Amino acid sequence: SKNWSEDDLQLLIKAVNLFPAGTNSRWEVIANYMNIHSSSGVKRTAKDVIGKA
Rank of each mutant, 00 (worst) to 15 (best):
K2P: 06
H37D: 05
I50P: 03
I36P: 00
N24M: 12
E28K: 07
S39E: 15
S38R: 05
K47R: 12
S39P: 13
N17F: 06
A46H: 06
K47C: 08
F19Y: 09
P20E: 06
D7Q: 14
L9W: 12
N32Q: 10
A53T: 07
N3K: 05
V16G: 07
G41I: 10
W27Y: 06
D8Y: 02
L12M: 08
K14F: 13
N35W: 01
D8I: 04
N24I: 11
E6R: 04
D7S: 14
W27T: 05
S5V: 03
L11V: 05
Q10N: 11
Y33Q: 02
I36T: 13
T23V: 06
N3M: 15
K47D: 14
E28I: 05
F19I: 06
I50S: 12
K52Q: 13
S25T: 09
K2L: 06
P20G: 10
N32W: 05
K52S: 07
A53Q: 11
E28P: 03
L11S: 04
E28H: 06
A21E: 15
S39R: 13
L9T: 13
G51Q: 12
N32G: 08
P20K: 10
N24W: 07
E6I: 06
K52W: 13
T23E: 06
I50L: 12
S38C: 09
E28A: 07
L9N: 15
S39T: 15
K47I: 13
K47N: 12
G51N: 14
L12P: 02
D7T: 13
E6Y: 08
V16C: 08
G22R: 11
A53P: 02
V49S: 01
S38W: 00
V29P: 02
W27L: 03
D8R: 05
V16F: 08
K14I: 06
I30C: 05
E6G: 09
S5E: 15
H37N: 05
I13H: 14
S25D: 14
S40F: 04
L12V: 04
N17G: 11
S38L: 01
V29L: 12
D48P: 00
A46R: 08
N3T: 10
L11D: 02
I36F: 10
S39V: 09
K52A: 13
L18F: 08
S1W: 02
S25N: 05
W4M: 12
I13R: 15
S40Y: 04
A46L: 06
D7W: 05
V49Q: 02
N3A: 05
L9R: 12
Q10V: 08
L11M: 07
D7V: 12
E6C: 14
N17H: 09
F19K: 00
K47T: 15
E28N: 06
I36G: 13
I13T: 10
F19P: 00
G22K: 09
D7P: 12
L9Y: 14
K47Q: 14
A21K: 13
V16K: 15
A31I: 02
G41R: 12
D48Q: 10
L12K: 00
S40T: 09
E6Q: 12
N17Y: 08
G22P: 08
N3S: 07
S40A: 14
V49F: 02
D7C: 01
V16A: 09
A53V: 13
S25Y: 07
Y33R: 01
S38K: 04
L11T: 09
G41A: 15
F19E: 00
I30E: 00
N35L: 00
L18A: 14
D48E: 14
A46Y: 06
L18K: 07
D8T: 08
S5T: 13
W27D: 05
Y33I: 00
F19W: 08
M34D: 01
W27F: 08
S39K: 11
N32I: 03
M34T: 04
S1P: 04
K43Y: 11
W27P: 07
K2V: 05
S39N: 11
D8L: 03
S25M: 13
V49Y: 03
S39I: 08
H37R: 09
V29T: 14
S40W: 03
T23Y: 08
D48Y: 00
A31K: 06
V49P: 00
Q10F: 05
Q10E: 12
